[in-house]
Design a protein around this nucleic acid. Structure first.
Length: 422
RNA sequence: GGAGGGGUACCGAAGUGGUUAUAACGGGCCGCUCUCGAAAAGCGGUUGGGCCGUAAGGCUCACGCGAGUUCGAAUCUCGCCCCCUCCGCCA
């Protein structure tokens, strides 16, 4: 959420930001709403001051055992006017609030302006493997090895759910442990195991709501949502809190399953593991001082990259352009891993700086140790990394001519030393 | 799920319709005095939001959240959320 004062003072900047994202939002209307809100507020406050004054007088008269009737009549009149204005405010406030919740964050100046065609490959790592046979897709590999059962997953749940079996299940668990170990032992993150269901306030705090409600699995009776990413519970750990500057930065890492309805994407990537309703992910979340957030973004990106490097998977780093970064983010890097079987680059991580956008929504502040003033923290998060697509990359990159899969070296200790799935 | 108790500031806690965050009192924390220094003691300070204002400052809102009663609500009524105790169920 952007501060209404900031919007008022930087109207052109915000307009440009919205335009650069390819969106249309009537800011003038929002300014109008805010103007009327402030007008009502001014009048309301002065009436309240009068009422408070009259109340004090009544109190004094009562003490002196004098007649209070005329005063009470006057106060009633003021109270009625106040009621009317408060009713007006109750119409204005939610409308302003919901308008503000729908304004996207402002992109960092370093973000390329434009649509998807403006995305930049900022760097790449590793080489595409030379196969002396035509590499096949993870679907074919997994079905031949009988380690993923697509039809039965559909039977149990619905289309685009996964059922890992045997060594794929073990490999999934190995990947989770490997990633959590890396981030907690080497990169200094504190491991968290959060709830997978969260309430509406949490979903609004990180910016999934109100915009993306139809993309979420929701439990109507309880108004709880299945998390689409651990970003939601992790960031909301400190919702409505005031942190000490000395405690920053705070780093959290968590494994969770992630649930996405993928409404509106039917017919896209319908086969295999590319777009599924439930996938595993290790997520990294940071709370930092504003002046540190861009340096922290680079470190976060590095932490995520290291996962792919240790797995020896070729990948590239994309800087997303203004129209492609998520609603809440100021800057976002995507990591795309190469899958030779389907010959595609797969997004396995997004590393974003949200600056104060989420912190303002979720009311996460810290006290500056010098000035003693309160300020919003900056929040960041990145996948470190998403598993289903990483599984695709491992299966397809490590496939052998005979259809077996070599186990990446770093994962061997996590799969009882096994070297090859066959 | 049932019964009972509770939610007030950094913490504990009083306040159960009349000057409403000058919400007593105790503790913690910060500053000052005293001291060679410390402790003790004494004094002062210590919630957050909104509006107006260059500022100084002024006004205003908030006692879990939301409605209501009243000229006036931390205090009364209703709904919701959360915590505690007991009972039931349960991996």
């Amino acid at each position: 959420m952007l501060d209404i004062k900031f919007i008022r003072d930087n109207l052109e900047l915000v307009k440009t930001s919205i335009k650069n994202r390819g969106l249309k939002i009537d800011l003038e209307e929002i300014i109008q709403i805010d103007n009327s809100r402030r007008e009502v507020l001014k009048e309301l406050d002065s009436l309240r001051a009068k009422k408070n004054e009259a109340n004090r007088e009544i109190s004094a008269l009562l003490k002196a055992k004098k007649d209070v009737k005329p005063k009470i009549a006057a106060m009633k009149e003021a109270a009625d006017k106040i009621d009317a204005l408060e009713a007006k405010l109750k119409e204005i406030n939610p409308s302003l609030e919901s308008s503000l919740l729908n304004i996207p964050n402002i992109a960092h100046y370093s973000v390329p302006v434009g649509d998807a065609s403006k995305k930049e490959i900022s760097s790449s790592w590793g080489k595409k493997r030379d196969f002396d046979f035509p590499p096949v897709s993870h679907i074919e590999l997994a079905e031949n090895l009988d380690i993923i059962d697509f039809p039965r997953a559909t039977k149990i749940s619905a289309t685009n759910f996964i059922l890992y079996k045997g060594w794929a299940a073990k490999l999934e668990r190995a990947l989770i442990n490997f990633m959590l170990d890396l981030h907690t032992k080497k990169h200094g993150y504190t491991e968290i195991f959060p709830p997978f269901l969260v309430n509406r306030a949490s979903m609004t705090g990180t910016g999934q709501l109100p915009k993306l409600e139809e993309d979420m699995y929701r439990f109507k009776d309880d108004d709880l949502f299945l998390i689409p990413t651990a970003e939601v519970p992790l960031t909301n750990i400190h919702r409505d809190e005031i942190l000490n500057e000395e405690d920053l930065p705070i780093y959290y890492a968590a494994y969770t399953a992630c649930f996405r309805r993928e409404a509106g994407s039917y017919g896209k990537d319908t086969k295999g593991l590319i777009r599924v309703h439930q996938f595993d992910k290790v997520e990294l979340v940071k709370f930092v001082r504003p002046q540190d957030s861009y340096a922290e973004l680079e470190k976060l990106l590095q932490d995520a990259r290291e996962v792919l490097q240790l797995l020896d998977l070729p990948y590239r780093v994309i800087i997303l352009p203004t129209a492609d970064i998520s609603f809440a983010a100021s800057k976002c890097y995507d990591l795309e891993v190469y899958a030779p079987g389907i010959d595609k680059w797969l997004e396995v991580s997004s590393c974003s700086n949200f600056e104060s956008f989420q912190a303002r929504r979720a009311n996460i502040r810290f006290r500056n140790k010098d000035t003693k003033e309160l300020d919003f923290v900056h929040t960041l998060n990145g996948s470190g990394i998403a598993l289903a697509r990483t599984m695709v990359a491992i299966l397809e990159n490590y496939q052998q001519k005979d259809g077996s899969i070599l186990v990446p070296k770093v994962l061997k200790p996590y799969v009882d030393g096994k070297e090859r799935i066959q």
